[in-house]
Write a protein that binds this DNA or RNA. Sequence first.
DNA 1: TGCGTTTTGATCCAATGGCTTATATACTTT
DNA 2: AAAGTATATAAGCCATTGGATCAAAACGCA
Lengths: 167, 167
Amino acid sequence: MTDHNKSQGIDSDLLSGGQDYFGDDTATTAYNRVWFNILRTHRKLLPEIGASLRESGIKDPIWYEIFLEIERGGATGRLASEIQDALNIPQYAMSRHVTRMLQADLVRREFIADGRRKQVLHLTEKSKGLSDKIWPQYMAEIQAVVSEKLTTEEGYVLTRLLIKLQQ
Amino acid sequence: MTDHNKSQGIDSDLLSGGQDYFGDDTATTAYNRVWFNILRTHRKLLPEIGASLRESGIKDPIWYEIFLEIERGGATGRLASEIQDALNIPQYAMSRHVTRMLQADLVRREFIADGRRKQVLHLTEKSKGLSDKIWPQYMAEIQAVVSEKLTTEEGYVLTRLLIKLQQ
DNA sequence: TGCGTTTTGATCCAATGGCTTATATACTTT
DNA sequence: AAAGTATATAAGCCATTGGATCAAAACGCA
């Protein structure tokens, strides 16, 4: 690495976990490594873990998260706008996920108020049925991939730090 | 949550960092939470942090990672196939990123061997010049977002765990 | 040498995503 | 109640992605 780039912030070793690469800039380096490793971990794991779902007809892993959020609403269902906020996705993305899940008969939509300004989502018989097969398979896939690399204790620590980072 | 879903692996509290939600299934839960929190952290931070780059004409944050990898190759440049492996992206994605970066005059391509079976990538004058302005701005943006939520020490721990998870 | 296999790169098609706009409804203020 | 603002959803435009496939070069080895 050139001195120029070192001083200008180009760091060829951003993936490293080492703490002493820069003598004078450890804080910035630590934070940058967090970011680049989130990107790479996401890129590496998403295709692996998502594959089992795709084969089961779940086109997007976020559908599972949407199911969880609907379920949190209990018998009264859950507002689409609430789910979208919980999942950190833009409105148009939520709208399109709902369209696709409707096509797959995996959610039921109920407009409240006369027009179509607010919609409440419910599970369908079909999506309730997924609990028996697909979700356990998904959980098993996650477990297989993650447990190969981390201890349970490390899993807790990692989860806690990721949650802090989202707040 | 229903008993049914609890036993079938649907967990309305996957985002939680708590360790004692399930009495009998803590390991699975720990690993699942890792996964879902990676997804949400990525979804939340990518638009925030990527915005400054887009405004500067860097169309995809991965371009920065590609620059870093090229730079690691030093004066001899770096094989496209090596970069693609380092970044965990499929071959066709790398091919297209190179096409776009060529159009933007941000990389130079050199085919080795007669045909075009192997390509080595180099920085251009333009991309070297980015060190002065855009990258420091990007680093500052990352630092601003991450340092607001984590201490430096937590950053190191998080990085180390993410690296373990990728290996 | 000759031939099958592996590696690398580019492209085709359908599906998806980001951004913006259109539309309808609800709320607020005077 | 009229006007203006805020909220919620969908749709249109265009660029990008994913998966599969095609094409070309290098390798392995009898």
